[in-house]
Simulated assay, not measured.
Amino acid sequence: MEQNLGKPKQLITKEFAKLLNENYNKTRYPLIKEAIKKEDANAIWFSIEELENYIKYIKAEAKKQKYTIDGIRFHFGAYPEDKKYAEKSGLTTLFLAPTGTKKITKTKVAAKAEKSIEIDDSLNIAPLNYGSIGNPPPITYI
């Protein structure tokens, strides 16, 4: 049975999303295209199944390694100019890395104290990549 979590607080309107995408395509995309001398990706797609599976994976790994997951950071990247990356060679990518804290136990004169330390996205859990970039030219949000 699915839990109803309510409406997310970070929702934006479709109109504002369109404006954000138009601003990116006008101000960032041409610079990237000029710099790499080819059409680049401006959107990355992951299936719901891939995202849900990754969330389950990082939660399980975190539990094994005594981490507390508090989020996922989305990092921009660029594939190396190498033929082994085929059509993605030199193009933009987006990878996901879990963020959180690790519980450590310190022993003090006959007493144990548990303390959380910030680890951020240096967790020893593999990031997720290889979403679909589609085929350039860029995808426009509508």
Rank of each mutant, 00 (worst) to 15 (best):
Glu81Lys: 14
Ile69Tyr: 02
Ser122Thr: 11
Lys108Cys: 14
Lys66Asn: 15
Leu20Lys: 04
Ala60Gln: 09
Ile69Leu: 02
Leu31Gly: 07
Tyr57Val: 01
Thr107Asp: 06
Lys88His: 06
Lys38His: 05
Lys38Gly: 01
Ile55Ala: 09
Thr105Leu: 06
Tyr57Glu: 03
Pro138Leu: 02
Leu31Ala: 04
Ala113Ser: 09
Glu15Ala: 12
Ala97Asp: 00
Lys84Gln: 10
Ala110Ser: 15
Thr107Gln: 10
Phe16Glu: 13
Tyr79Asp: 02
Asn42Arg: 05
Lys115Asn: 12
Ala97Phe: 00
Gln3Cys: 10
Tyr141Arg: 03
Phe74His: 10
Ile32Lys: 09
Thr140Pro: 00
His75Trp: 06
Tyr29Arg: 01
Ile139Ala: 11
Gln10Gly: 08
Glu34Asn: 10
Lys108Met: 13
Asn53Leu: 03
Ala126Phe: 03
Glu61Asp: 03
Lys14Ser: 15
Lys112Ser: 10
Leu11Phe: 12
Arg73Lys: 07
Gly134Lys: 15
Ile48His: 05
Pro30Asp: 01
Leu123Gln: 00
Leu19Met: 06
Pro98Ile: 11
Ala110Asn: 15
Lys83Thr: 06
Gly134Cys: 10
Ile139Asn: 06
Glu114Lys: 04
Trp45Tyr: 15
Ile104Asn: 09
Lys83Leu: 09
Thr13Met: 05
Ile104Tyr: 09
Glu49Met: 02
Ala35Gly: 14
Lys112Gln: 13
Gly131Arg: 00
Tyr85Glu: 07
Pro137His: 08
Ala111Gln: 13
Lys83Asn: 09
Gly77Ile: 01
Leu20Val: 04
Tyr57Ser: 03
Ile142His: 02
Glu50Ala: 09
Glu87Pro: 01
Pro127Ser: 07
Ser89Met: 08
Asn21Glu: 14
Gln10Met: 05
Ile125Asp: 00
Thr13Pro: 04
Phe76Gln: 15
Glu2Cys: 01
Gln3Asp: 07
Glu52Cys: 04
Gln65Thr: 01
